[in-house]
Design a binder for these strands. Sequence first.
RNA 1: GGACCAUUAGCUCAGCUGGAUAGAGCGCUGCCCUCCGAAGGCAGAGGCCAGAGGUUCGAAUCCUCUAUGGUCCGCCA
Length: 590
Amino acid sequence: MGGKPRKRPMNLFAEIRSLIVTTLEGMVREGALPDGLNFDPITAEPPRDAAHGDMATNAAMVLAKPAGMKPRDIAEALADKLAQDARITSAEVAGPGFLNLRLAPGVWQQVAGAVLAEGTDFGRSSLGKGLKVNVEYVSANPTGPLHVGHTRGAVFGDALASLLDFAGYDATREYYINDGGAQVDVLARSVYLRYLEAHGQDVAFEDGTYPGDYLIPVGQKLKDKVGDAFVDKGEQFWLEEIREFATEEMMNLIRSDLEALGVEMDVFYSEKSLYGTGRIEAALDDLKGKGLIYEGVLEPPKGKKPEDWEPREQTLFRSTAHGDDVDRPVMKSDGGWTYFAPDIAYHYDKVQRGFDALIDVFGADHGGYVKRMKAAVSALSDGKVPLDIKLAQLVKLYKNGEPFKMSKRAGTFVTLRDVVDQVGPDVTRFVMLTRKNDAMLDFDFDKVMEQSRENPVFYVQYAHARVASVLRKAADAGIPADEATLKAADLSLLDHEAELGLLKKLAEWPRLVETAARTNEPHRVAFYLYELAGDFHGLWNRGNEEPQLRFLQEDDPATSAAKIALARATAIVIAAGLGILGVTPAQEMR
RNA sequence: GGACCAUUAGCUCAGCUGGAUAGAGCGCUGCCCUCCGAAGGCAGAGGCCAGAGGUUCGAAUCCUCUAUGGUCCGCCA
């Protein structure tokens, strides 16, 4: 990467936009436009309808009002100047004041060259340069294996972190271990039962224990470790030790689940490490210093009142001062912390670690938690560190079109491992990203394995594999198609409208990366890849009817080199996109 | 009672933080494989963007209200 003469990332839309702005600044100097205009809202984007041109700008319409001029007048003046640039072949005013630009074919052809030169780094952005962002995801309780619900959050968070990295941010992947609450006591007691079982005792799993089989080996392992030291002993003798032992075992289980999915965390942050170390107190002191902690009584929730409601004075965080609907308790009536308190301390710690932005990925059932968490971070960072919370909606499982019921009680609850074992990590990851995070997702075990256009995973993989096939065929036919040949190819031979169409799609990649990163929406990458694959397959298919569009032109090595370069560039962008999603590109389909 | 999310073609969903005639896949209709790249391809029909107001040059997109569905609501994490 470094050391090459052209290190500026190639983003055509950004280039043309800056050309437009520069031109407008020139017009201001000449007096054609008044001083003090704000150029920020100006865009350069692909028009919805390709018939309108290659790029459209709203400059004239955005500036008309502040400049006190007619949009068409501005547009026409701007059009004349832009048309003088070598990259622009035509600039036409349309409709209320749109300016439609057509770019010289050479501009598009050069995109393939840029992709070949930069490889899968093509499209990397400096959007997040110098900014540290923390992405917290999964953060499942260490009480059992991960299930499908966690899977979506895991894939989403991981892809988001990769996307942000690609967009120039320094992203940290973090897992918050809830090892400080009552649920790990429940875990410890459950493991104790399995331990007794390993010693040959009959045990009963009552309500409030975890009956899952996955604890059987943990009980056995505990027996191997401590022998019969804890048998027939009271809780006070073993609870703490087993809690620690069991939590570690569960985290190993979770880590291996994540590994099966290809997820690797940078940081595992323990909730327990916040207790008894003064860190919760420090965080609350910070809030206290800002006058946001007080003793008070909350109103009962209306409509649905708990049976045993009674007014109670508690220590409260004035979250309403930062956008929440009601103030939230940080201390229970028995003097212990609520769950919210260590969470505040944890986020305080993230702020202290110097992150410029925080992202939390929660399950949809934590939706009610969003406002108070944002309020806390806003208060702790004096509004300086934005916290974006992404909710991963439910996953509905299907088998052959039939809903697949999942119930913990009936023992039919589906784990991450079940899914990955059945369809593989690549399919799991891609499918989980074929929907916005806040929409429900249908996951059909059969459909995701189908080999058809209907299945985006297959369709995208197939495009990549087809390029690999072209390269293999070229070798068979004795057509040179090594990297050096492709890089030296005369790309001006790619002058067919279908080829230019594919080039234009490739040119959108850098822009898409920035949009997706700005909105924290990795699913956009998946949809883009599907469209890109569609354009590629479309060009391929046209080769059936129009042989001159085929990538291999037996008796014309120069043309072949250009066309193969285009195919190769497509594969590179697909590989880069799949890389963000954490999916391995396929070399061939089976 | 309240909060958050969703509502776009018959179905499943995109829609690039406000742009032009709202897109894709499936399904439907009609064409296209003796051969050259059909695990398919081409073309077509199909829409009051849940509804009503508002903001402005311009709204599926922003604001308000309403309807429907989902998630959640003080000592559970």
